[in-house]
Amino acid sequence: MTVEELGRRMSCEEFEHWKVFMAEEGVVAAASMRFHASLLAAAHNGPCVPPRGTKAWRAADFLPHDPWAEPVIAPPKPVTRDQRRAAIEAAAQRAGMET
């Protein structure tokens, strides 16, 4: 967005409100949340090494979910020929067909 577009969309009063808001809350709120999340992770982990097969807590585990983030989708597991055959036979039996 250009300054000209901003001038057409936002009044001076709204701009002043945003200036005050950003001065008071702005980046400080996000940095504060990250700092507290790192403290929570450290408190939950304690001085110990996590048990085998588990992982240590991270600061990201204590931050709110970003609703605009791209979803993480795991790739599908490959299906073997035997698994496919078993699924087809099971579906046929449920449908009352003989195999």
Results as ranks from 00 to 15, higher is better:
T2W: 00
T2L: 03
T2I: 02
V3Y: 03
E4A: 05
E5R: 11
L6F: 12
L6S: 08
L6P: 02
G7Q: 03
G7N: 04
G7A: 03
R8D: 03
R8I: 01
M10I: 07
S11C: 10
E13G: 00
E13Q: 01
F15T: 01
F15R: 02
W18A: 00
K19C: 04
E24M: 06
E24R: 07
E24Y: 07
E25W: 02
G26D: 00
G26Y: 02
V27I: 06
A29Y: 12
A30P: 09
A31I: 07
S32M: 15
S32D: 14
M33Q: 14
M33P: 09
R34L: 04
R34K: 08
R34Q: 07
A37Q: 07
S38H: 04
L39M: 14
L39T: 14
L40Y: 08
A41E: 05
A41M: 09
A41D: 13
A43S: 11
A43P: 08
H44E: 09
H44M: 10
G46P: 00
V49N: 15
P50T: 11
P50D: 07
R52I: 11
R52S: 15
G53P: 09
G53R: 13
K55D: 04
R58Q: 08
A59S: 08
D61F: 00
F62C: 03
L63I: 01
P64E: 01
H65E: 14
H65T: 08
D66F: 03
D66Q: 00
D66E: 04
P67K: 10
E70K: 14
V72E: 15
P75S: 06
P75Q: 05
P76Q: 03
P76G: 00
K77D: 03
V79C: 07
V79W: 03
T80V: 01
R81Y: 09
D82I: 05
Q83N: 13
R84V: 14
R85W: 13
A87Q: 14
E89F: 12
A92L: 15
Q93H: 11
R94G: 06
G96D: 07
M97G: 15
E98G: 15
E98Y: 09
E98W: 04
T99S: 12
